[in-house]
Computed example of a mutant assay.
Amino acid sequence: MVRWEPGAAGRLREAAMALYAEQGYDGTTVAQIADRAGVTARTFFRYFADKREVLFAGSEELERVIADAVIAAPAEAGPMEAVAAGVLAAGEAFVGRRDFARQRYAVVAATPELREREFIKMASLVEAFRAALQERGVAPGRAVLAAETGITVFRVAFERWVEGAEADLVVVIRETLGELSELTS
């Protein structure tokens, strides 16, 4: 097997998702994932800390996308407008990734250990929102409330999208933001 074959990370993700679908997360080993991807287990560990991280790699990038969009929102934008910009930017990050998102969602939903890790990821995204809002001068308490609301909108929209909404995630996010606006008026 070639040690540094191009596209190894993508092949490892595809192999892991296929194996998780075939035999479940708990029934899948790193060795099986590496074998299916045509690399060694050592190569697997160059890309991922463990088999769980195949599903969560890229979280830091999503945090950065959110924070950058919140900070870049127009100066006159209020906290929720800035949060909306961050949520929409997060949605843009999933363009062309619906199949993977659906597969990942199913694996995470079926595995308690992974659901726990998903909660940790969501808490990190809340923190990204909060820090960016505070950088914009939003008071800490308001920043936390807006951040938690933004993540709730993202999570609700994401679940609708992977569970069958026909529209793109960004459209579903806009609809969910509209529903929130109606609820709070």
Rank of each mutant, 00 (worst) to 15 (best):
residue 185 S to R: 14
residue 6 P to Y: 00
residue 160 R to V: 05
residue 60 E to L: 11
residue 77 A to C: 03
residue 115 R to F: 01
residue 61 E to V: 08
residue 4 W to Y: 12
residue 52 R to N: 07
residue 35 D to S: 12
residue 87 V to C: 06
residue 104 R to W: 15
residue 14 E to F: 14
residue 139 A to Q: 09
residue 25 Y to M: 00
residue 2 V to D: 10
residue 159 E to Y: 13
residue 74 P to W: 00
residue 73 A to K: 04
residue 131 A to H: 07
residue 87 V to T: 10
residue 128 A to V: 09
residue 39 V to M: 03
residue 27 G to Q: 10
residue 160 R to A: 07
residue 27 G to H: 05
residue 54 V to Q: 05
residue 16 A to K: 00
residue 102 R to Q: 15
residue 68 D to Y: 10
residue 88 L to K: 12
residue 40 T to H: 02
residue 88 L to F: 01
residue 182 E to A: 10
residue 127 E to S: 10
residue 21 A to M: 11
residue 32 Q to P: 04
residue 129 F to S: 04
residue 155 R to A: 13
residue 110 A to V: 15
residue 93 A to Y: 05
residue 156 V to K: 13
residue 95 V to S: 11
residue 145 L to E: 13
residue 85 A to K: 04
residue 148 E to L: 04
residue 26 D to R: 06
residue 108 V to L: 05
residue 13 R to L: 11
residue 19 L to C: 13
residue 61 E to R: 12
residue 123 A to V: 10
residue 104 R to D: 09
residue 11 R to A: 13
residue 75 A to F: 00
residue 2 V to C: 12
residue 18 A to Y: 01
residue 142 R to Y: 08
residue 72 A to I: 03
residue 124 S to D: 11
residue 48 F to I: 05
residue 183 L to D: 04
residue 21 A to E: 15
residue 96 G to I: 09
residue 162 V to F: 09
residue 68 D to R: 15
residue 19 L to N: 13
residue 185 S to C: 04
residue 163 E to Q: 09
residue 18 A to C: 12
residue 150 G to R: 00
residue 147 A to Y: 04
residue 185 S to E: 05
residue 75 A to I: 01
residue 100 F to P: 05
residue 14 E to T: 14
residue 105 Y to K: 08
residue 168 D to R: 15
residue 70 V to G: 01
residue 66 I to P: 04
residue 58 G to E: 08
residue 94 F to H: 04
residue 98 R to P: 07
residue 36 R to G: 06
residue 96 G to E: 06
residue 56 F to V: 09
residue 177 L to R: 03
residue 159 E to D: 14
residue 167 A to V: 14
residue 161 W to N: 06
residue 88 L to P: 00
residue 172 V to I: 07
residue 175 E to Q: 12
residue 11 R to P: 10
residue 149 T to D: 03
residue 78 G to T: 08
residue 182 E to I: 10
residue 168 D to E: 15
residue 106 A to C: 15
residue 117 R to I: 09
residue 51 K to E: 14
residue 10 G to I: 14
residue 148 E to M: 06
residue 132 A to T: 03
residue 136 R to L: 02
residue 73 A to H: 10
residue 51 K to R: 15
residue 157 A to D: 14
residue 42 R to N: 12
residue 72 A to D: 15
residue 85 A to R: 01
residue 106 A to E: 15
residue 56 F to Y: 12
residue 143 A to N: 07
residue 177 L to E: 02
residue 136 R to M: 02
residue 67 A to M: 00
residue 20 Y to S: 12
residue 68 D to V: 09
residue 27 G to E: 06
residue 94 F to R: 00
residue 147 A to H: 01
residue 76 E to T: 11
residue 183 L to I: 03
residue 67 A to F: 01
residue 3 R to G: 11
residue 185 S to M: 09
residue 89 A to K: 01
residue 37 A to Y: 09
residue 60 E to P: 08
residue 94 F to Y: 08
residue 140 P to S: 03
residue 37 A to Q: 06
residue 160 R to Q: 13
residue 107 V to T: 15
residue 36 R to C: 09
residue 124 S to N: 10
residue 158 F to L: 10
residue 153 V to F: 02
residue 119 F to C: 11
residue 108 V to P: 02
residue 167 A to S: 08
residue 29 T to W: 02
residue 118 E to W: 11
residue 131 A to M: 07
residue 43 T to C: 15
residue 94 F to G: 02
residue 118 E to N: 07
residue 146 A to H: 01
residue 154 F to W: 07
residue 173 I to R: 00
residue 159 E to S: 12
residue 143 A to Q: 06
residue 17 M to V: 13
residue 144 V to D: 11
residue 48 F to Q: 03
residue 105 Y to P: 06
